[in-house]
C-alpha cells in the first residue's frame, strides 16, 4: 500500500506525543519508578539487557514457531474438509465450537502434565491460541467458493474433489487462509507470556518477564520486555504482510479495498 506524500510521517506525531506524555507523567506526576518507570529508563534497560534479550527472543520465537506451525498444519486440512464438504462440517463443527471458547490459559495444567517443562508445553499453549482463528477463517474461504467457478472448473476438466480443491477452491480461499493465519499469529503471540510463565525453559521473553524481573520488582525491565513483545509482534506482522498478503491480495484489489 502506497501512502500519499503528506500521510507518510503521520504516525510519528502521536507516537512522539505519547512518549513525551509518558516521560512527563513518570517524572512529574507519578514520581515512583515502581509504578511507572520512565520511558528513558526503559529504553536504557533494553540496551542494558541486549544480550539476554536476543536469546530470550529467539527461544520465544521457537515456542511461537512450534505452536503456529503446528496450528497451521492441523487447521488447514481440517478447514478444507469443513469448507468443502457439508457433511464434514456438520460432523465436526459441534466439537470445534465446544473447544473454541476454552481459553488457552485453561490448557496450561494439561500441557504441563502432557509435555512437562519442555518447549513443546509452551508450543502447545500457543497452538491452542493460534489454531481456531486459522481454522475459522480458512474454512469460511473454502465454503464460499462461488458455484459458477467450481462448475467452470468441471467443464474445463477438473473432475473429482482433489482437482477442484487444488485448482479452484485453494487459490480462491488463499487470501482467507492468510487472514486467518495473521489473526492466529497475533493470538498465538499473546499466549507466549502465559506459555512461558511456568519456567518451561531457562530462556524466553515471558519467562524472563515474569519469573525474573517481576519477581524482583524490576519494573523498568518488565516494561522494557513488554515493549519488546510488542515490537517483535509488529515485525512479524509486517513481514507476513509484506511477503504473503501483498502477493495473495494482488488479484483482490478490485474486489476489496
Amino acid at each position: 500500500m502506497r501512502l500519499p506524500r503528506e500521510e507518510k510521517g503521520l504516525w510519528l506525531v502521536p507516537l512522539v506525543a505519547v512518549i513525551l506524555l509518558w516521560e512527563f507523567s513518570a517524572v512529574f506526576v507519578v514520581k515512583d519508578p515502581l509504578k511507572l518507570p520512565r520511558f528513558s529508563a526503559v529504553v536504557f534497560s533494553i540496551y542494558a539487557l541486549r544480550d539476554v534479550l536476543i536469546a530470550d527472543t529467539l527461544v520465544s520465537l521457537l515456542h511461537f514457531g512450534i505452536g503456529v506451525g503446528l496450528a497451521f498444519a492441523v487447521a488447514l486440512p481440517l478447514a478444507i474438509g469443513m469448507g468443502w464438504s457439508r457433511r464434514v462440517f456438520k460432523a465436526v463443527d459441534p466439537i470445534v465450537e465446544l473447544l473454541r471458547p476454552i481459553p488457552p490459559l485453561a490448557w496450561i495444567p494439561l500441557a504441563m502434565i502432557w509435555f512437562h517443562l519442555t518447549h513443546y508445553a509452551a508450543g502447545f499453549i500457543i497452538f491452542i491460541g493460534a489454531f481456531f482463528p486459522i481454522l475459522i477463517d480458512s474454512y469460511t474461504g473454502f465454503r464460499d467458493v462461488p458455484k459458477v467457478l467450481v462448475e467452470t472448473g468441471k467443464v474445463l476438466g477438473c473432475i473429482g474433489d482433489r482437482k477442484q480443491i487444488r485448482f479452484v477452491a485453494l487459490p480462491y480461499a488463499l487470501p482467507s487462509v492468510a487472514t486467518g493465519t495473521r489473526v492466529g499469529m497475533g493470538v498465538g503471540w499473546m499466549c507466549v507470556v502465559a506459555a512461558e510463565m511456568f519456567a518451561v525453559s531457562d530462556y524466553g521473553l515471558g519467562y524472563r518477564l515474569f519469573q525474573k524481573f517481576y519477581f524482583l520488582h524490576q519494573m523498568d525491565y518488565v516494561v522494557a520486555y513488554m515493549l519488546v513483545l510488542g515490537l517483535v509482534a509488529l515485525c512479524l506482522d509486517r513481514l507476513f504482510r509484506h511477503f504473503v498478503e501483498e502477493r495473495l491480495f494482488r488479484w483482490k484489489k478490485g474486489i476489496v479495498k
Binding site: E151, V155, L156, F167, P171, W251
Partner: peptide, 28 residues
C-alpha cells in the same frame, strides 16, 4: 458428465479472479 469436449460460457462472470487473462485461458 462434464468434460472439456463441451466448452461452456456462463451468464455470470466466471473468470478465475486470481488468474490473469492468459492464465485463465490456459486453465483447461
Amino acid at each position: 458428465g462434464p468434460s472439456p469436449d463441451r466448452g461452456m460460457v456462463f451468464q455470470e462472470f466466471s473468470l478465475f479472479p486470481w488468474r490473469t487473462v492468459l492464465r485463465n485461458v490456459e486453465f483447461g
